[in-house]
Design a protein around this nucleic acid. Structure first.
Length: 1014
RNA sequence: GCCCUGGUGGUGGAAUUGGUAGACACGCAGGACUUAAAAUCCUGUAUUCAUUGCGAAUGUGCGGGUUCAAGUCCCGCCCGGGGUACCA
């Protein structure tokens, strides 16, 4: 319909376009010119050598995926860009770089499927991302660009890894130190007096140390190194063929791809992030991050205070050590539970329980993570047959094994206090164990039904703890435990060391080779260890990682001897843990960044990115920064002073509903047999009817009949030669449909049939006019067919509109579904703003000629100055608090007022162009140059706000009675409280409202409000 | 379950320190211009009642409370979003 209209009106439209072209806002031309100018003048290049104060604004490192950017990605990029541009106008030297997190699984999965080298895939994806970013007018200094897969970059990732490898964490000095220090301590006095972060507590003398052979020494040191190799339980993902870190596993499946994850014991490189647990936790108090983000990290680190406590197992041959945060409930212990993986299980199990326990341990260990998690509610366990002695009561208590106890946390054993721990309670109830109460529960609490886990109340039935409050009891219990040598007060963390090796090709090689079976670091001077070419991106036949395929990839020492390298590579997060430092000095071949550069740029002032990185990247990059700080390599402990998480822009997915039908047919010759032909008709029903079917289970008879008639008729129409008896509806299939085919929930049916040829003969009930789809708000993703790219929006409205509209949508941190409703408001704003420079706000029809650019040099009025300075102030404040949506409104208000005033004066408009330039840089650049400036608006200064233009001498007081506003009263500003009260009460309006009521009280807040209480 | 968030017109949202709730924009309705449409401009637009005008009452998820005054603070619920989960 629209097309035919265009044809009919073609001549008119052409005329319209020509006559409007000169004065109208032609964003295509404007944006092309401005971007060309910035490239030609290299406008975004930033120097490390500047007298100006620095400011560092960073976007989170993107992993360039094959799908390109969708409209959700730019939200953060635009916000940081506006902020950077603003800071530049305010006289800062702003570092605002961009680069690529280029190693990672998707490119490698693609390589496995297609054989295309991940480097090629990655490059293509980067090119696409970069062109989209440039289209958005982002002010990155591309001269600082790099990707993590460049050897020149990963040389330094490897360098930091070696540094971690050669370090241990001294809990006395609370920092990382060279491993040589530890070795010399071992040589002097063995482990005595050493307080180190380690895997397990070790005890040996100096002589013993010296007697260790080389292999043993290496093994011992791995117990202390910050990058270490150990036999460990890992998250193994068979489909991806690699291990995953804890934060890469969600709900028992891999975060990328959603494949099941198993637990597997294997040799594994890890980073000892747990050594930094306390500092990672405390550091949170020093940074300006959102409370939810800090909370997420706090929970992930999971600090808990408590005590260790030893229980002698019958005979005294073995001891079970448990960790508890509730030593005050020790008198309520009725059993002990060991994790299935706990070594003691095999040792203490009695002969008669052996078979059952072994069977149980085996099944528990073989469970996948998923099974373990879904079966959380199911209680399971076995009695080992052994008894422990209660250290305070001397009573015998049974030792059980149960998979609700985790091997990796605490000591892998818990004391069962069923009355005051819900998990112990479930266990005791299931196996019929005693539930004695030892903390007074609130009135009416049925301890047999539910445990009382609360941390308030008094101890009862608890020997020396009787009568004490929980808090005091915990203190005293720990004291007593320590006095008796049964254990000591202890802090435990939930945080685990981070698995660092990946059985994968597309990552940084780990610069380690194996000399006589001993993992040996390469020398720093030999870096980078480059990724070798290989023939296939899959594991070898013997199950080694892909790198083992590389021929002639061997470490050669001076004597010409060859050793094989480590075959695993680093995980995706290795490069991103320090990448922000490289931007400061990206081409430095001698250091990861020069001291001067680091000292000048310091840490990130504003970091913007998604909240999904809370427990991954954001923790690792704090960890690496602290490590580098310990060696004096960076002068700060926290990488990012301020962090803002932009909300997710969700997609709106559309659905169509296909009836599942069965048609029965009668054939002449088969008479009277009824057959079901292998023919089908596709009938789609609108959302409204689907809802009725899905919620009511049965349709109203009339509608049901109608549908069947419809199907039957359509079948006849499609297969006229078949003798149909009838159609039955057996169900509804919900199908996703690409949102490009849907507008306001209405389906474009010709387009649909074209895009999905399988449905080219489909029918729509009741007719093809106005078929309404269902919709749902979901994450924007290719697989959900709900992706909107910025490209389309920009083509239609231009970059400046796109930028301002994304900001106008709402607060930066808030998530919201994408919708273009309202984009015309922003577009109109820019057009009207443009017109202000052409028509002085009036429609000039006098000449009948296209208007020309014109601004008046006449001096501004007080009102005009007030509008300007109000806006200058508001925009500045809003940008500083990242409230970009209100800033956009402020521009609109300002424009409305200027149009009202018919103001086109240079002294007003010129400063406004500068204010607008961070938001809509292209139109600002064009107007700036039209205003006669030869240099770019990027080099301008943000206009100075002058309070004097805003000074008023009256204030319009809202006068309220009992809190309800009744009328306004304009009064001079300089009145005293008493005078205000007097004038208000004397006013006619007040008299009307007071009538004969008595005034109890009058509240006057100068320049705010007057409230009269009657 | 626990932790963190949020809940305001038909819609997106504003109200920054307890002080005029609904800025700004979309949408919608009416009008001007036009042969007509588009575009543009003007007017109105929380709800209910009243309507000739003046107006009145209600109103920020629900129920209480503090206060001269509560979207904002306190207590108890309900709902949505995110994180996390046998972490002893």
């Amino acid at each position: 319909m629209f097309k035919s209209w265009i044809r009919a009106n073609n001549r008119q439209i052409c005329f319209f376009l020509i006559s409007q072209a000169i004065m109208d806002y032609n964003f295509k031309e404007i944006e092309k010119n401005a971007q060309k100018k910035w490239v030609d003048e290299d406008s975004y290049r930033v120097s490390n050598d500047s007298p100006l104060p620095k400011y560092y604004v960073l976007d989170m490192f993107p992993y360039p995926s094959g799908a390109g950017l969708h409209v959700g990605h730019p939200l953060g990029y635009i916000a940081s860009d506006i902020f950077s541009r603003f800071k530049r106008l305010k006289g800062f030297n702003v570092l605002h770089p961009m680069g690529w997190d280029a190693f990672g699984l998707p490119a490698e999965q693609y390589a496995i499927q297609t054989g295309q080298h991940p480097a090629i895939t990655t490059k293509n994806n980067i090119d696409r991302y970069k062109s989209q970013m440039n289209m958005l007018g982002l002010s990155y200094d591309w001269s600082r660009e790099y990707k993590t897969s460049d050897p020149a970059f990963y040389k330094w990732t490897q360098w930091i890894f070696l540094k971690l490898f050669k370090s241990w964490y001294n809990n006395k000095t609370k920092k990382a130190e060279p491993i040589e220090n530890l070795i010399s301590k071992f040589e002097e006095s063995g482990t005595t007096g050493i307080h180190a972060a380690c895997g397990e507590e070790m005890n040996f003398s100096a002589d013993e140390w010296k007697a260790f052979n080389e292999k043993k020494k290496s093994d011992v040191l791995f117990n202390y190194r910050l990058a270490y190799l150990s036999e460990a339980w890992v998250n193994w993902c068979p489909q991806l063929g690699t291990v995953l870190a804890n934060d890469e596993v969600k709900d028992g499946v891999s975060e990328r791809g959603g494949y099941p994850v198993e637990r597997k014991l294997m040799p594994q490189w890890s980073l000892r992030i747990t050594a930094y647990a306390e500092r990672l936790l405390n550091g949170l108090d020093t940074i300006d991050w959102s409370e939810s983000m800090k909370e997420a990290q706090r929970n992930w680190i999971g600090r808990s205070e408590g005590s260790s406590l030893e229980f002698k197992v019958e005979g005294g041959k073995y001891k079970v050590s448990v960790f508890t945060t509730r030593p005050d409930t020790v008198f309520g212990v009725t059993f002990i539970t060991l994790a299935p993986e706990n070594e003691l299980v095999g040792k203490i199990t009695t002969a008669d329980r052996k078979d059952a326990v072994e069977e149980y341990v085996k099944t528990a260990k073989n469970k996948t993570e998923r099974e373990r998690q879904t079966e959380v509610k199911k209680v399971s366990g076995e009695f080992t047959g052994a008894y422990a002695i209660h250290p305070f009561t001397g009573k015998e208590i049974p030792v059980w094994v149960g998979d609700y106890v985790l091997a990796g946390y605490g000591t892998g054993a818990v004391m069962g206090v069923p009355a005051h721990d819900s998990r112990d309670h479930a266990f005791a109830k299931h196996f019929g164990l005693d539930i004695p109460i030892v903390i007074e529960a609130p009135e009416g609490w049925d301890i047999l039904k539910e445990s009382y886990d609360g941390k308030t109340g008094k101890c009862i039935n608890s020997g020396f703890l009787n009568g004490l409050d929980v808090k005091d009891a915990i203190k005293l219990a720990i004291e007593e435990i320590e006095n008796r040598g049964l254990g000591k007060g202890k802090v435990n963390f939930r945080l685990r060391d981070a698995a660092f090796g990946r059985q994968r090709y597309w990552g940084e090689p780990i610069p380690i080779y194996y000399k006589n079976g001993i993992p040996t670091p390469m020398d720093e001077s030999e870096l980078p260890l480059e990724l070798p070419p290989i023939d296939k991106f899959q594991p070898t036949e013997t199950g080694d990682p892909p790198l083992a395929r590389a021929t002639d990839w061997k470490y050669k020492d001076k004597d010409g001897k060859e050793y094989h390298y480590e075959y695993t590579t680093m995980p995706g997060w290795a490069g991103s843990s320090w990448y922000y430092l490289r931007y400061m000095d990206p081409n430095n071949a001698n250091e990861f960044a020069s001291k001067d550069a680091i000292n000048y740029w310091q840490n990130i002032d504003l970091y913007i990115g998604g909240a999904e990185h809370a427990t991954g990247h954001l923790l690792y990059f704090r960890f690496w920064t602290k490590f580098l700080f310990d060696y004096g390599l960076v002068p700060f402990e926290e990488p990012a002073k301020k962090l803002v998480n932009q909300g997710m822009i969700q997609g709106v997915s559309s659905f169509v509903y296909k009836l599942r039908t069965v048609c029965e047919e009668k054939r002449e010759n088969d008479n009277p047999k009824i057959i079901r032909p292998n023919l089908d008709i596709e009938v789609f029903i609108p959302e409204e009817i689907y809802k009725q079917i899905s919620t009511k289970e049965r349709l109203p008879d009339r509608l049901d009949e109608e549908l069947i008639d419809f199907c039957t008729n359509k079948f006849k129409q499609l297969y006229p030669t078949h003798k149909l008896i009838s159609c039955y509806i057996i169900g509804v299939q919900v199908l996703r449909v690409d949102i490009s085919l849907v507008k306001d929930d209405f389906l474009n049916i010709p387009g649909f049939k074209k895009m999905y040829p399988a449905f080219k003969n489909a029918f729509f009930f009741p007719n093809e006019e106005n078929y309404k789809c269902g919709h749902e708000v979901e994450k924007m993703s290719k697989s959900k067919y709900n992706v909107v790219t910025p490209d389309d929006v920009i083509a239609q409205y231009g970059t400046d509109t796109m930028r301002m509209y994304e900001m106008f949508l709402g607060p930066l941190e808030m998530s919201k579904p994408w919708s273009t409703q309202g984009i015309s408001g922003v577009y109109n704003f820019l057009r009207k703003f443009w017109k202000l420079f052409y028509t002085s706000g009036q429609l000039s029809v006098v000449s009948g000629q296209p208007e020309e650019f014109f601004v008046s040099d006449e001096g501004p009025t007080a009102t005009e100055l007030k509008v300007l300075h109000k806006t200058i102030k508001k925009i500045e404040e809003d940008i500083e608090r990242l409230s970009f949506n209100t800033a956009v409104s402020a521009f609109m208000i300002c424009l409305n007022e200027l149009i009202e005033l018919k103001c086109n004066k240079r002294e007003i408009l010129e400063p406004l162009v500068i204010c607008l330039s961070p938001f809509a840089p292209h139109i600002a650049e064009e107007l700036w140059s039209k205003l006669g400036h030869s240099s770019s608006v990027l080099k301008a200064s943000y206009p100075k706000f002058e309070e004097k233009y805003l000074i008023e001498n009256t204030f319009s007081y809202p006068v309220s009675f009992n809190g309800k506003t009744r009328f306004m009263l304009e009064l001079p500003l300089n009145l005293s409280k008493e005078e205000i009260e007097k004038q208000v009460l004397a006013s006619e309006d007040a008299q009307k409202w007071v009538k004969d009521a008595t005034i109890k009280k009058v509240i006057v807040v100068p320049n705010k409000i007057v409230n009269i209480v009657v």
